[in-house]
Amino acid sequence: MIFLKLFFEFFKTGLFSIGGGLATLPFLFKMAEKYGWFTANELTAMIAVAESTPGPIGVNVATYAGFKTAGILGGITATLSLVLPSLIVILIIAGFLDKFRSNKIVDSVFFGLRPAVVGLISVSVMTLFETTFVNKLSTVWYQFIDVKKAVLFAIITFLVFRFKKHPILYIALGAVVGICLSL
């Protein structure tokens, strides 16, 4: 039953991705690998769409991934499953908000959690790089990096750090250059 599987996977993602939208990525890459619902390449397109449309990125990616997997109902299932754990957790916490915030144990658990999330997202970034820059037809990947894309990456990265404009601008720039150079 695809909807049950979607529910289970996205519930798990919602429950364990801590620290915002991008934290869902490691789980989504695992899902792509495990179920083949969507490819790593498609996930990259999803991230781009999610970054350039309104709404929280995690929710956008979940809707897209669910839609890809099982149509409109799939999108709804994935999104609701993703938010259900946080809905439950927050409704519980809301009752004793101040105690939660000042709790020493909670604080120290998150002291360890935050760096781990950074490590996990870095792995997702590596996967993104691999699907973007590496020529899949080769087995020795480092010999087949797409040079045009690498140059474009260097330029956009420079612009991103230099000007800190809205992501949608860089995404549009990428699209235009991609079409002009037939990347």
């Binding site: 820059f133 990456f153 991103v160 990428g174």
Partner: peptide, 11 residues
């Protein structure tokens, strides 16, 4: 293709 390069930079 171009967009995914931009996404890498943003990530």
């Amino acid at each position: 293709s171009g967009i995914s390069v931009a996404v890498c930079a943003l990530m």
